[in-house]
Design a protein around this nucleic acid. Structure first.
Lengths: 99, 99
DNA sequence: TTTATAGTTGGGAATGTTTCAAACAATTGA
DNA sequence: TCAATTGTTTGAAACATTCCCAACTATAAA
């Protein structure tokens, strides 16, 4: 039960990044929104629901993408954002449901 | 399903702060350690397990205390840190178990 | 009283995060 | 082609966080 012998693994790292992502109000709202609607949303649709400057939104979505919480699909000039529910549930089961 | 109609409540705020707390490696380790051992630990005992400068440790423990994840009890010149398991499970059930 | 131990606090440097304006690229429709 | 729409990027300002040194308080032991 020594913490030095249970270092932060890659999975722990992923968990920590998920926590980091969810520690910011805007990203918290985005993630919860995506989970609740249960399907992908266009960025503009998200922007209509969450009052965030579009470049700030873009920044947050990039953060979520880099951490691996969302995946983006481009269609025409729209981008659709999808929550990686399974991937999150694999390391932190039930977390999304309790947001 | 409008996010503006489901603002971040006090509970959401608490959740967000828990995420913030766990997004830092040192605090993540401290919390996991406390959860795994299942009982309170003295600061010096924690210090022996987690390699953190004592003032940094004090800073992190204060943060955890202010957010409400731990409670501290003083006995003599020692301080015992206890994880508020029930309080955390009340808002994010199963989270601690998946750290 | 003196010394050692446990932990906190203040200060400051280094670093990281968030926000927005402005400029940009890409696609669509007139 | 020209204009509108979607979203990204860059850069800078403002702000927050983390870390460690040094000084401090308080308790316990010698």
């Amino acid at each position: 039960m020594d913490i030095k012998q249970s270092p932060v693994s890659a999975t722990d790292e992923f968990k920590r990044r998920i926590f980091f992502a969810l520690s910011e109000p805007g990203r918290y709202k985005i993630v919860r929104m995506l989970y609740r609607v249960g399907h992908e949303m266009g960025c503009s649709e998200l922007n209509r629901h969450v009052e965030i400057d579009k470049s700030t939104m873009s920044y947050h979505l990039r953060t979520l993408r880099e951490i691996g919480l969302v995946t983006t699909r481009t269609q025409g000039r729209e981008k659709f954002v999808q929550l990686n529910v399974d991937r999150i549930n694999a390391v932190l089961p039930g977390l999304l449901a309790s947001l």
